[in-house]
Nucleic acid binder design. Structure first.
Lengths: 338, 338
DNA sequence: TCCGAGTGTTGAAGCGTTTCGACAACATTA
DNA sequence: TAATGTTGTCGAAACGCTTCAACACTCGGA
């Protein structure tokens, strides 16, 4: 292995000078600088990460904590990950993978051994058991998702309230006046899973604001249940012309249910989904998506900021983005009114 | 940070003694051992990874090199990853994530700075540009996939020849005597993409061995092409009663094509797919799957072996596993023969 | 009684960086 | 011209760990 001493010898300077050329923490004459740079290139020198970590007590590595629990949508997760890694690299940081099965143990270990400087924790739930641990450990960390209390943390999440509202606004702008909401399975709401409730809340509030009649129902993810829910929505509100669906698994059954009940999309019934973009693309649904890349990037930027001692807001909410597709159309062209 | 010296002081021994308790490289009296262990626990001591790496010139970290190119099936990839990480942890190793966009640069950097001891490279292609680099760098590495020449490398892959053969055997055992093969798009074969050819070869050889008439055709991934291919297969070999499909994207259209041509599955036509298990499960197809967990695990085990100086075979092929589902049935019960 | 062979433990010397204080050499000001 | 900065460079001391050589012991055997 070629060391800083080798470079120094080759360039005819002291090791410390080489170090200063590398870190730029002291002024170095242009001649010396180029000379040293040349030696570095020639010898193919790379500073030993361990030694550097030892001397600076900074590893320049962050832990990426992946849950990998069943039900996470992997393509979205991967987009998070790539965005996060790319951003980290832009700040000269590397990424250590910590999977959930290592649990709290794993977090303690990598932090305790100074292997990483901070944590990027993905897919955080309302009552996540990693949160108290992170709080206690004191290492900088950024969470993607939104636990119950964000005080003292740094969290990034999609603004689900705004997402719910965005759907209503889109439909209202198209002229719809009666909108239904098909949500996650009821257990999800019972479990107090933050995002589901917030989406609903945003949806409801926006509907009120726009003077729109709305009805909401949960949906299980089998065809019969979805059909029943849709039918029930239509019965409660026969003039309903638009549907917001926040349930990936049920999405496939919604189209079938509508067809079975004699409604065409988008002519008789506009549909807006809140779901990963691939899914919406594939089914040609107007949708509000999770901005995965943006979340990953932002989260890593915040982590880097915290590592450099900058203060960060406890909660950063990203605005939702709506992509118009074939499943929504202006109410004015609605054939049923012809 | 609590150091080895703190532990030593607390336990009333020398730092080196603590080190020996930890590494077990020298005999230590039971009394001292428990005393030291107790101090470690009490103080919450974790060895500083950087310091350790510096002293031992071993980082106990391996790089996981992910390509993330379009077209990789992410659920399968994630199963690789988790299996690899879990296995690494069992050997007290951590995993550093290196994404492909960092390219050769990235590999050089992490290897040069002694950040990792070895590489686990996923999704290797026949003429992968990372292969010469890995050869040259001399760091231990294991590849998942199979480049053109494996000499001097350590590669792990599914035995695609055996996979092709396994399909034939399954169908032959069920009594089928005329089998069709629907492959990847023709460009894939033109590109010399190893696994596609090997699967076909295995299929063909097995058919010959079992005295079975076989016909093969590539398939593009739109409905019309698939329909045309299936029709063409049926015309060439009207007595065909089974179909092997090695084309994820076309899989969805095959069922439709068969229905359109008046064939019921499995009664008129048995179908075996070679594809990720989720897909097969979802469509209820008998299938040969990529044993993702097993590949990840094996690969990491091999890497660890290499890191410990053990020699490894240049190529490890994993046997395919066939899962029987609703799309195949014994030929004897075939209604068309009734 | 002395010797040689274990055992268990220690002190000190690395490992490759960074960084602090010191120090020349030179430029600026009084 | 002397005092004072400024700039560029250096030597040495950390950083926290491992490991080698050395050193006390104890224990049989001669």
């Amino acid at each position: 292995m070629v060391t800083i001493a080798d470079v120094a010898r080759h360039a005819g300077v002291a090791p410390s000078t080489v170090s200063y050329v590398l870190t730029g923490k002291r002024s170095i004459s242009p001649q010396t600088r180029t000379k040293v740079r040349e030696s570095i290139r020639l010898l193919g020198y790379h500073p030993h990460a361990g030694a550097r970590a030892l001397a600076t007590s900074r590893a320049n590595v962050v832990a990426l904590v992946l849950p990998l629990r069943p039900g996470v949508h992997l393509p979205v997760l991967m987009r998070f990950v790539t965005a996060a890694v790319t951003t980290a690299r832009r700040h000269d940081m590397d990424v250590l993978l910590v999977t959930a099965d290592q649990g709290a143990q794993g977090l303690r270990r990598v932090a305790g051994s100074a292997q990483v400087d901070g944590f990027l924790v993905m897919d955080v739930e309302l009552d996540d058991d990693r949160v108290p641990l992170l709080r206690q450990m004191g290492q900088p960390s950024v969470l993607i998702g939104r636990p119950a209390a964000v005080k003292g943390l740094t969290c990034v999440d999609l603004d689900f309230e705004a997402a719910g509202a965005r759907c209503v606004d889109h439909l209202a702008d198209l002229g719809h006046r009666y909108i239904g909401f098909l949500g996650a399975p009821s257990v999800v709401y019972q479990r107090n899973t933050g995002y589901a409730q917030r989406t609903m809340a945003g949806f409801g509030a926006a509907a009120m604001r726009r003077g729109i009649a709305s009805t909401a129902l949960p949906a299980e993810d089998d065809y019969e249940s979805v059909l029943a829910s849709v039918r029930s929505l239509l019965r409660t509100q026969p003039a309903m012309t638009a549907l917001v669906v926040h349930n990936e698994a049920a999405l496939g059954w919604v189209a079938g249910s509508l067809r079975a009940l004699g409604r065409r999309v988008p002519d008789d019934m506009a549909v807006v989904a809140i779901c990963p973009d691939e899914l919406a693309e594939q089914m040609q649904l107007t949708s509000v998506q999770l901005p995965a890349e943006e979340l990953g990037r932002q989260a890593m930027e915040l982590l880097v900021a915290r590592l450099n001692g900058h203060p960060t807001a406890p909660l950063t909410l990203l605005p939702p983005k709506l992509s118009g597709r074939a499943s929504t159309a202006p109410r004015l062209r609605h054939r049923g009114t012809a």
